[in-house]
Design a protein around this nucleic acid. Structure first.
Lengths: 348, 348
DNA sequence: ATGAAAGCGCTAACAT
DNA sequence: ATGTTAGCGCTTTCAT
């Protein structure tokens, strides 16, 4: 076969084959090889096929660095997070990664903790590598990352972290999630629904508590003050005492997260109160490993973080492609994952 | 000031400044700018300072793509994992990232699940981007990632996942960890020490059980057969029944992970058995959110995964720099984190 | 002490 | 139908 003399699969090279290697082996110019491989220009089908074959045999892969330099586009984005052990940011990341990998985009993961120096370091490293854009994420939506991303000259998207003013951001619809939980309990016939949640310093605590109250009011049910504590199991456990102190103890508890819910369930059980028989419990976060292992398995609000990440990733791509995107905060719906802590499980 | 006419901080450009922009503004050649900025070549200190100043004012940052193309080194590595919700791989990642960021190296995070197609896709994307090396990690040390990394032509390191034959790998010393746990219990005067652990399909189950048995034998204590189950809380809970069925119930339980330990503790409490008063319990993994929230807080074996990641990262850098590294599996020590589930807490 | 020129691997406009 | 040329932004001889 002309132009393929001595070229075999066994020809193992240390240095990866370049366009020039292919051109030489195929007896054509580099430009022709480039066109053949990129389906551009005109040439006989036979030539194109032959060049392709030579490239394949040589194991040619285009050098992305060279392509990026030329196109001014690196097919690379940065993901900044301060959530090292990733309860929240990891599902977001998974969604981003999923959305981007099919477009040939790779993601730099950067843990910045809450350290401005570390944030700066990572951002500069990414800028030097000419990332096409940056996504910022975190563990709560009312705290900024320790680094200013608003003047970088490249597109930036915020997902599950507090955005800079006028930026594009994606957050979960916490109010909607709370409504989902309460409406589920109401539908199941519960009438005295309490709310045990985390510290008042978290914006979501108020968002969810307010929505909870509103949903109860809409259903014509009484809404007591939410029980404010910490995001911990031990708080949930301790809160049970307060819950049972009143004249009319609740027949349902909507909890600010799954750990609190778990503590509540444990506390109830220790007092011989059945879940869901006597009291129904709903959690928030749908943290699989917690919600699934609770006895009984916990019905919980899922924030759809992976979907949120996917949207963020796709939107960043639009931005990179120069498409206009309206700034502002987009709120994505939650969903309720029904298990057995409220009675009437899926089959019932 | 000569050569700085019209150059001010306010000169905001969309297109990032290039070496040529700096050269023009400073009235010198690109070569001189390059040398000035890289502390190379000879020139008057005054020239060097002036060029530096111009570069600073223009906000010049060298284009890493161009540098990488030239140096054949991208200061970029890939991290492959199949542990999407990262109990194990996330601490490893944090260690890797920490070790590399100070060297100006950024990390591509690639979730490959257990999908060979996805693995291939990510690996090819990374190869095209000319990563300097790849680190493979996962959720257990006896399963391979769904993609072959042995013929890539770039350095590869395995951390907490099964390595290819003859590769370089880092794993935790599970046997040592089990020994640590048992010796701690023995030291505290416990004499009938049971072992409740996960499925026999996991290599670590045998490693830890064998080491547990050996440590008991070494202490002259009886070693019953380990109780094999699943890695779940519910299994730990269920195992309590078996534990208490014998004539001589245990005064300590070493558990294969923290979730099992938690189930065991719950089961014991429900039967009115005190922890640590009557029975001491040790977990494995030191999963903070689980071990810290157990009542009482759980003493647990920590695999030092972040340290493992750091070693893996640094070793990869050595490899990239062409330094020779002995192939083989390196085992890194575990440590015991003492809380209150065995009595005699730190202060006691 | 400084600059001109070549080249990393690739693509695209412009020949032929 | 294919090749020549220029150039992305940078570093590095080699001249001057």
């Amino acid at each position: 076969m002309a132009g393929m003399d001595g070229v075999t699969e066994e020809t193992v090279r240390r240095r990866p084959a370049t366009l020039r290697d292919v051109a030489r082996a195929a007896g054509v110019s580099v430009a022709t090889v480039s066109k053949a491989l990129n389906d551009q220009g005109r040439m006989t089908a036979e030539t194109r096929a032959r060049i392709r074959e030579v490239a394949r045999v040589l194991g040619f892969r285009p050098n992305g660095l060279a392509q990026s330099l030329l196109r001014n586009r690196s097919f690379t984005v940065g993901l900044l997070t301060n959530d090292t052990y990733g309860r929240f940011s990891l599902p977001v990341m998974a969604g981003i990664s999923e959305a981007l990998v099919d477009n040939g985009v790779s993601v730099f993961l950067c843990h910045v903790e809450d350290d401005p120096r570390l944030g700066q370091l990572h951002v500069e490293a990414m800028l030097d590598k000419r990332v096409d854009g940056i996504i910022a994420t975190g563990k709560r939506i009312d705290r900024r990352l320790p680094v200013d991303l608003s003047q970088l000259g490249i597109p930036v998207i915020y997902a599950f972290t507090e955005p800079a003013p006028g930026a594009i951001a994606f957050v979960s619809d916490d109010a909607g999630g709370a409504r989902l939980a309460v409406e589920h309990l109401v539908r199941l016939g519960r009438r005295r629904i309490a709310h045990v949640t985390g510290p008042a310093s978290f914006a979501v605590v108020h968002t969810r508590a307010d929505a909870c109250g509103a949903a109860l009011a809409a259903a014509g049910l009484p809404a007591g003050a939410p029980l404010i504590g910490t995001w911990s199991e031990s708080w949930g456990h301790a809160a049970v005492e307060t819950l049972l102190a009143g004249l009319e103890p609740p027949d349902a508890v909507f909890c600010g997260n799954d750990q609190i819910a778990r503590g509540v369930i444990d506390g109830l059980r220790e007092r011989g109160i059945r879940v869901p028989g006597d009291v129904a419990v709903v959690g928030f976060d749908n943290w699989e490993i917690m919600a699934g292992q609770t006895r009984p398995p916990l019905t919980s609000v899922d924030m759809n973080l992976a979907a949120l990440g996917r949207e963020a990733g796709l939107t960043l791509l639009s931005l990179v492609d120069g498409k206009p995107v309206e700034p502002g905060i987009r709120t994505l719906p939650c969903r309720l994952v029904v298990r057995q802590s409220c009675g009437r499980p899926p089959g019932g």
